[in-house]
Computed example of a mutant assay.
Amino acid sequence: MPAEPRLAAGARLALTTFTTLPVRAGRIDRAVAGTAMALAPAVGALLGALLAGVLLLTGGFAPPLVAAAVTVGAGALLTRGLHLDGLADTVDALGSYRRGPAALEIMKKPDVGPFGVAALVVILLLQAAVLAELAEWSTSTMLTAVVTATAAGRLGVTVACWRGLPAARPDGLGALVAGTVGPGTLAAGTAAVALLALAAVPDRPWQGPLAVAVALAAAVGLLRHVVRRLGGITGDVLGATVEVVTTVVYLGLVLSG
């Protein structure tokens, strides 16, 4: 049987990595992993459309804050909560002030420490607050804003897999995807998300791309700190990057709105 084409295999891997959609995993190697990380923003846009639908439907019979909370919960369910788990583990490791293997060992523990709990509470509250605000916007603008933020969050993963960023461990998701994204791929993904962001705040078309730029700058800062402390990226770091970038874009879209 001929090998599955890299694009198709990458799309499968992207869907199984970033969502709970019932897609069977296919061929997996570093070439396919690179394609999957390149397609991450597209998967994020699909997920964002689903979440916008949840917000719109729930907002039809529930107060905005309730609809927002349901949407945040749906996001966790559609991603198995992996990104939130990665955020908690990463913050716990960084908050321990340990380095290298000692910090990585903290990330592997199944429990969540106080730093991780605080990070989860803050991120979830901010996302719910922003979604409650977006629920009051027009349907088309709300849809674009949610899709933009969710796609940008997965673009953060593409940034994290930039060539030159090492893996912290010799195995695991980080080792599979680290360094698999080249400059052309990253530029194309960034341009696509920035173009989408132009329509996220119609009265101020510059605000969406600016929010994306600030969020990606925050991701670069986080990744540089992680490499210094841990020695490289891990699957948990990818999850943390998703949540940080998504939340910063959400905030950037509603500030002064």
Rank of each mutant, 00 (worst) to 15 (best):
residue 214 V to F: 12
residue 19 T to R: 01
residue 225 H to T: 12
residue 236 D to R: 02
residue 101 P to M: 13
residue 100 G to F: 00
residue 157 V to S: 08
residue 130 V to W: 02
residue 97 Y to S: 14
residue 97 Y to D: 15
residue 248 V to P: 08
residue 42 A to D: 14
residue 232 G to W: 00
residue 146 V to Q: 05
residue 79 T to I: 02
residue 5 P to V: 09
residue 45 A to S: 07
residue 89 D to S: 00
residue 62 A to Y: 08
residue 25 A to K: 04
residue 132 A to I: 09
residue 40 A to T: 10
residue 172 G to P: 10
residue 211 A to M: 02
residue 111 D to T: 13
residue 39 L to N: 07
residue 139 T to D: 15
residue 216 L to M: 13
residue 124 L to V: 11
residue 247 T to L: 02
residue 226 V to F: 06
residue 99 R to I: 14
residue 29 D to L: 03
residue 86 G to S: 02
residue 20 T to C: 13
residue 251 L to D: 06
residue 235 G to D: 00
residue 25 A to H: 02
residue 185 T to Q: 14
residue 121 V to Y: 04
residue 192 A to G: 02
residue 118 A to N: 07
residue 111 D to N: 14
residue 198 L to Q: 10
residue 67 A to H: 05
residue 65 L to Q: 14
residue 102 A to E: 15
residue 219 A to I: 05
residue 158 T to A: 12
residue 148 T to M: 08
residue 247 T to Y: 01
residue 16 T to E: 02
residue 252 G to T: 09
residue 111 D to W: 13
residue 3 A to L: 12
residue 159 V to D: 07
residue 115 F to R: 05
residue 1 M to S: 15
residue 140 S to V: 14
residue 183 P to I: 00
residue 94 L to T: 03
residue 137 W to K: 04
residue 119 A to M: 07
residue 163 R to Q: 15
residue 176 L to F: 02
residue 163 R to W: 14
residue 237 V to L: 08
residue 19 T to Q: 00
residue 236 D to N: 06
residue 193 V to M: 05
residue 223 L to W: 11
residue 165 L to A: 05
residue 159 V to C: 05
residue 139 T to E: 15
residue 220 V to P: 09
residue 201 V to Y: 05
residue 102 A to N: 13
residue 47 L to G: 03
residue 110 P to G: 04
residue 131 L to A: 15
residue 234 T to S: 04
residue 175 A to T: 02
residue 131 L to W: 15
residue 246 T to V: 10
residue 70 V to Q: 12
residue 62 A to F: 11
residue 168 A to M: 00
residue 225 H to F: 14
residue 64 P to W: 03
residue 64 P to K: 04
residue 185 T to E: 13
residue 70 V to R: 10
residue 68 A to N: 01
residue 192 A to H: 04
residue 62 A to G: 10
residue 67 A to V: 03
residue 142 M to C: 14
residue 25 A to E: 09
residue 66 V to S: 09
residue 10 G to T: 05
residue 107 M to A: 10
residue 164 G to L: 09
residue 182 G to Q: 06
residue 19 T to P: 01
residue 13 L to K: 03
residue 154 R to W: 04
residue 102 A to S: 13
residue 164 G to N: 07
residue 9 A to W: 08
residue 56 L to F: 15
residue 51 L to D: 00
residue 179 G to P: 01
residue 45 A to L: 06
residue 188 A to H: 11
residue 213 A to N: 05
residue 40 A to C: 10
residue 92 D to V: 07
residue 113 G to N: 06
residue 102 A to Y: 14
residue 165 L to F: 09
residue 241 T to M: 07
residue 101 P to Y: 11
residue 241 T to F: 11
residue 41 P to W: 06
residue 193 V to D: 10
residue 78 L to Q: 06
residue 137 W to E: 08
residue 235 G to T: 00
residue 51 L to G: 03
residue 256 S to G: 14
residue 17 T to S: 12
residue 194 A to C: 12
residue 222 L to R: 13
residue 47 L to K: 00
residue 130 V to G: 04
residue 247 T to P: 00
residue 136 E to P: 11
residue 228 R to M: 07
residue 6 R to G: 11
residue 41 P to Y: 06
residue 41 P to M: 01
residue 27 R to K: 01
residue 11 A to E: 08
residue 19 T to N: 00
residue 101 P to E: 15
residue 119 A to G: 04
residue 173 L to W: 01
residue 229 R to A: 12
residue 155 L to P: 00
residue 208 G to C: 08
residue 217 A to V: 15
